[in-house]
Amino acid sequence: MSAIFNLQSLLTVALLLICTCTYLKSFFPTVLDKNRTGVLKTFWKCARIGERLSPWIASSCLFMAFSILFLN
């Protein structure tokens, strides 16, 4: 089943995308900053969300990891 039709999988993919983009922006800031327009704008926006909401994203990742490991 695809991640689009399963809410937990969709949230996991979104959290991983946000965390990955934020991590890559910390090492290569110019790569994501130059892509503020076009199709790659999504990755820049995910990095901004990860930077600005980092405590919320971290707690969401911990909750998602707990639910995947112990509730499934």
Results as ranks from 00 to 15, higher is better:
14 A>H: 04
14 A>Q: 06
15 L>K: 01
16 L>M: 08
16 L>S: 10
16 L>E: 07
17 L>G: 06
17 L>T: 05
18 I>W: 00
19 C>I: 08
19 C>D: 09
19 C>M: 09
20 T>P: 00
20 T>A: 10
21 C>S: 14
21 C>Y: 02
21 C>R: 03
21 C>H: 04
22 T>R: 05
23 Y>V: 13
23 Y>R: 02
23 Y>C: 12
23 Y>E: 04
24 L>Y: 06
24 L>H: 12
24 L>D: 03
24 L>W: 06
24 L>C: 13
24 L>P: 01
24 L>R: 14
25 K>D: 08
25 K>M: 11
26 S>C: 10
26 S>N: 13
26 S>E: 14
26 S>R: 10
27 F>Y: 13
27 F>L: 15
28 F>W: 10
28 F>K: 04
28 F>S: 11
29 P>G: 02
29 P>A: 03
29 P>W: 10
29 P>S: 04
30 T>I: 12
30 T>Q: 12
30 T>R: 10
31 V>Y: 07
32 L>K: 01
32 L>V: 09
32 L>Y: 07
32 L>G: 00
32 L>P: 00
33 D>V: 05
33 D>R: 12
34 K>I: 15
34 K>P: 01
34 K>T: 14
34 K>M: 14
35 N>F: 10
35 N>A: 11
35 N>T: 12
36 R>G: 14
36 R>D: 05
36 R>L: 12
36 R>Y: 08
37 T>M: 06
37 T>V: 08
37 T>E: 10
37 T>A: 08
37 T>W: 04
37 T>D: 06
37 T>Q: 10
38 G>K: 08
38 G>W: 10
38 G>T: 07
39 V>S: 05
39 V>A: 09
39 V>T: 13
39 V>M: 12
40 L>F: 14
40 L>W: 14
40 L>V: 08
40 L>S: 07
40 L>I: 09
41 K>R: 15
41 K>E: 13
41 K>D: 08
41 K>F: 11
41 K>H: 11
42 T>I: 15
42 T>N: 06
42 T>C: 07
43 F>R: 05
43 F>S: 15
43 F>W: 15
43 F>D: 12
43 F>C: 15
44 W>R: 09
44 W>T: 15
45 K>M: 12
46 C>M: 11
46 C>D: 03
46 C>Q: 02
46 C>L: 06
46 C>H: 00
47 A>M: 04
47 A>N: 01
47 A>G: 02
47 A>Q: 00
47 A>P: 01
48 R>I: 07
48 R>H: 05
48 R>C: 11
49 I>H: 01
50 G>K: 03
50 G>M: 07
51 E>V: 07
51 E>T: 11
52 R>D: 06
52 R>N: 13
52 R>E: 10
53 L>A: 14
53 L>T: 08
54 S>Q: 14
54 S>M: 11
